[in-house]
């Protein structure tokens, strides 16, 4: 049994009715039909071309785990994974992602079955208000993959060597995710624990 808190939480995923577009993009000033693949499920959405990927997720698919902290690429709360790479979903248009594989925080784990990174954040109290948390977790998952892939960072001492999973590397690489509650020290401990596990 789990301790409960009192708000019923819906995780509805809406699928808009209507014909599947023959092509991903039709040239109209409004009402483009876009096929988005999110967390393994395809959705056909009729979207204003101005709709960001973040707003498509939050307002059209009701996947509100990706947060809008600034809407200008200044905070990282909207971080999602697109084709396995982390991006700020607020600074890209949904119509530019037809055919892409989008993974949001909801796609990593559920309250009943947490992803190891989510579980580590709970264990190390790597959050307080919770608003930056999904972005931190998506970023953290990607950071470990980036180090694994040998992508250097500003603090990598030897650019020609493979980067290591040091705390300095984690802190630099996570710096695009602001946490005003100041959980950084705990977040790095959570990531370090996950990084230390055998692959």
């Amino acid at each position: 049994m789990e301790a409960g808190i009192g708000t019923a939480v819906g995780t509805a995923v809406t699928t808009l009715a209507g014909p599947v577009a023959a092509q991903a993009i039709s040239r109209e000033s409004t009402g483009l039909t876009v096929r988005l693949k999110v967390n393994g499920t395809e959705h056909d959405l009729a979207l204003d071309p101005r709709t960001t990927l973040l707003d498509a997720l939050r307002e059209h698919l009701h996947l509100t785990g990706s947060k809008k902290g600034c809407d200008h690429g200044q905070c990282g709360a909207c971080t999602a994974l697109v084709n396995g790479r982390r991006i700020n979903s607020c600074l890209t248009l949904a119509v530019m992602h037809a055919g892409d594989e989008v993974t949001t925080i909801e796609g990593l784990g559920t309250p009943e079955k947490l992803h190891p990174m989510q579980a580590a954040f709970v264990k190390h109290d790597g959050y307080q208000c919770g608003y930056c948390t999904p972005g931190q977790i998506c970023s953290a998952v990607a950071v470990l993959q980036e180090i694994e892939a040998g992508i250097p960072s500003y603090v990598t001492e030897d650019l020609t060597a493979a980067p290591q999973r040091t705390e300095a590397e984690l802190r630099e690489r996570m710096s695009g995710n602001i946490c005003r509650c100041g959980a950084y020290s705990n977040i790095v401990e959570a990531i370090t624990e996950v990084a230390g596990r055998p692959a």
Binding site: R86, N88, V143, E146, I151, P152, Y154, T156, L159
Partner: peptide
């Protein structure tokens, strides 16, 4: 660009400058 082996080896100033900019998320786009 920052991660390209040739850039890291031969144009380190460029790799380092790229990595000094923005955030991992923004550099991916």
């Amino acid at each position: 660009l920052a991660a390209d082996a040739r850039v890291r080896r031969d144009y380190g100033v460029l790799s380092r400058a790229l990595l000094a900019g923005a955030s991992g998320q923004l550099r991916n786009k």
